[in-house]
Simulated scan of single mutants.
Amino acid sequence: MSGDLEVASSEDDAADADDADSDASTADTMRERAGESRVKLWLLLRANRLLVAGVLTLAIFVAFVAVAVAFSPSLAEKVGSSDPIETLFASMITVIVTGATLVVTIGQVVLTQENGPLGDQQERMNDTLTVRDAIAELTGTPVPTDPAAFLDAILGAASRRARDLRESVHERRGDEPDETALWEDVDELATGVVENADTVRGQLDGAEFGSFDVVFAALNFDYGPKIGRAERILDDHGEALIDDEQDLLEELKGSLSLFGPAREHVKTLYFQWVLIDLSRQILYAAVPALVVAGLMLAVVDAGTFPGRTLGVDHVTLVVGGAFAVTLLPFSLFVSYVLRVLTLAKRTLAIGPLVLRDSGPE
């Protein structure tokens, strides 16, 4: 009876382990893991941010004109009886100035992180060099200074360790059930690491920092579940592995573990880069937006743009276009923040934690 209970308990533990591995299994690329439509992910991440801002501005213009035409009396008649243009664009001038000031404040916060006393800067440098030394020891070569090549070096080290581990286990593979299970687990881990690493290294080839290409490629290497699988192999088959294979497995795990903070470091630098670019572009867009708002206050009234085209008052088209232009700084802000927030959500966990959405974003 006791033996039966022990067997049943062992079977339950094995089933739980299989369920844990199944839960940890995940697609490699971010597109496959996200479970979102290709168009949505392209809009949130891959699309040019200026293009997204332009499309959003156009959508605002179309929506404004459509709503203005749908209501009666027409905008031209409202302008003749009151002064909605002055009310609208006086408010927009206040919004633009306030928003530009806020953007400058955000830029100052970003730059503040780069400032500090000499001791703090020396500590940052020492921490950076310590990590670079660890990566150099792992790869056997000096660490590149280019962010794409930096990530590529870590992926190359992980891929080599995975191949060496698979070859070592394959050479002494036997027909015993334990050895077969070891081979299958190692082969699955090695295949996943090598194929995923080769794909991402191809995407990193030629990618330049400042564009989104480097960060997007890094998102496609799903290192967390691979660390978990390496830990599972060491726990399940530690006694069946020879010393060299245990060392290779530990080095593989170390390579995968280094990719996490390396990716986060590159992502953090990209966030700072983007926030500085966003601040500059919003300030650039604020100038023409203020000019347009000022012109609408000083020049445009009910008689400035008489006539109609396709049943739409010319003044409606002008006011709608001017309103969309004055919202261009906000459209830029929305387009960049959508990417930053999506990227932050996709990289919340560092390490072997698999976060999955329970519903749409």
Rank of each mutant, 00 (worst) to 15 (best):
S37A: 12
F259V: 06
S257P: 00
G107I: 12
T199F: 13
G303R: 06
G3A: 14
R201G: 05
A322Q: 03
L248G: 02
Q108I: 15
T304I: 08
G119A: 15
H237P: 00
T180K: 11
L269G: 15
L5R: 14
E231G: 09
S37H: 14
L278C: 10
R201E: 06
L118P: 03
L310Y: 02
A148T: 06
L338V: 07
A134Y: 02
V79E: 11
D213Y: 05
L269P: 12
L88A: 13
I93V: 13
I135E: 01
V169G: 08
A349V: 01
N48W: 00
G119H: 08
H314R: 12
A181V: 03
V292E: 01
T141Y: 08
E11W: 08
V337L: 14
L343C: 07
V340N: 02
M125D: 14
A289M: 08
D236V: 03
G238F: 01
A217K: 00
T347R: 00
V109L: 15
L256D: 09
N196M: 10
V95I: 14
I242T: 06
G192E: 06
P142R: 03
F71E: 10
A153L: 06
E137L: 13
E137K: 14
T199H: 14
D244H: 05
V312Y: 02
L278A: 11
L343T: 10
L338Y: 10
F209Q: 07
A262T: 03
G321C: 00
A344Y: 01
A293C: 08
V214I: 06
L118W: 02
V318E: 07
